[in-house]
Nucleic acid binder design. Structure first.
Lengths: 206, 206
DNA sequence: ACTATTACCAAGCAAGCGCTTGGTTTAAAA
DNA sequence: TTTTAAACCAAGCGCTTGCTTGGTAATAGT
């Protein structure tokens, strides 16, 4: 199980992710919350200002535009997800454990402390102009490559029946959708949820 | 395989779904297209009017508000989906075929002629106020119940390993996400896609 | 032919939108 | 103590938004 908290702190120290104590960090956190809650288009810069306790115009001292705030939320979570998955995979020494690392890492982002930003990344990327969409996509390439490589290894080990390129998208969809229905406070733990996902993804039973 | 086209015609005759030749039907189709393409919030009533060739103010002769147009798009596809699934299940006489009917029907809606309205239903329901959200949810209860019942039967037949209530959500997520990545014009046919989904959903191999 | 209904246009209003500008406060560096 | 830069306020501009109003064609029923 990857310790995302410690990893985030390292990324903050490296300057790859904004310090949540800084004005920029606070603003991004507030934006992630509101964008997730009400959607990007339905969130006004006045809402954003009120959430952090400043006037709307003052936002533009930190960001050039509202869309740049959205882009900031997304690109930081992209960086964090890649680092987290890389760390988790480095501790998985067999195909089955590696597939579980894929699932557990994504679930940790969807339902952990970064859940707001992750949800925004998954559900609001259409709000970016095409140039910034392409940037986000480029930033996610390494992440997708790790999925592809892991699932290919699982296939060669005879663990999965569906072709990796399709299975990747199907699992990804199943995990993404948990943001809509799964409540961590309910009867099913995050680990239990990961178990079910793994059970569905793999054709060979333990 | 359900014949959705014929089924839609029956629903139109019954008055449960708007005739696509009527002004209301044309408007709903145009709205589904634009809401899917650009999102509900980013679509203006002027865009909508231009799409059907009338001025924006004239829209309000047919609908009381923009949100009511969105609600119209959603509630009609809800009705059609339930009817389609009911018809498909009535032809499936064993658990495995029934599960395939669930998958094939949902895929048919996501990627067939009703793809725009279906995508809007799946991705824009947050744009409704809570009262209308509740109405849509009520309208989908029968649909979800058929899923639940079918998966429970599959479980009792030893076909699936994951509990029906979780499996339902996981499959639903995987199918929903195909709207983002799957192209019917590509190498994988809709039937092939359904095969992969079934392969992933079931733990017993044919 | 007359009537009623449906479908639309032309014009615009009030409100809210993202963002700008010029200036003030705060706090750290020199 | 002076300088410099970051953070923010106060006010509002130009534009777009959903929607309204009063009136005119078109269509269909009788």
């Amino acid at each position: 199980m990857p310790q995302i908290g410690a990893l985030l702190r390292k990324l903050i120290a490296d300057g790859q992710v904004s310090d949540p104590a800084s004005p920029r960090g606070k603003l991004l956190a507030a934006a992630a919350k509101l964008f997730r809650q009400n959607g990007y288009a339905a969130t006004t810069v006045r809402d954003l200002g009120a959430e952090v306790g400043i006037l709307s115009g003052s936002l533009f001292h930190h960001f050039k535009s509202k869309e740049e705030i959205l882009f900031g939320v997304m690109s930081e979570v992209v960086v964090a997800m890649e680092a987290a998955l890389r760390a988790a995979l480095s501790e998985a020494h067999e195909p089955r454990a590696a597939v579980r690392a894929l699932i557990a890492t994504e679930l940790a982002f969807i339902h952990g402390k970064t859940s707001n930003a992750t949800a925004v990344l998954l559900y609001e990327w259409r709000a970016l102009n095409s140039s910034r969409q392409a940037q986000i996509l480029t930033g996610r390439e390494a992440y997708f490559a790790m999925w592809q490589q892991t699932l290919k290894a699982a296939q060669q080990a005879g663990l999965v029946a569906v072709e990796p390129e399709y299975l990747r998208q199907l699992i990804h969809g199943a995990l993404t959708w948990t943001a809509v229905w799964y409540k961590p406070s309910g009867a099913l733990s995050l680990d239990g949820l990961a178990d079910r996902c793994l059970l569905m993804a793999l054709s060979e039973r333990p």
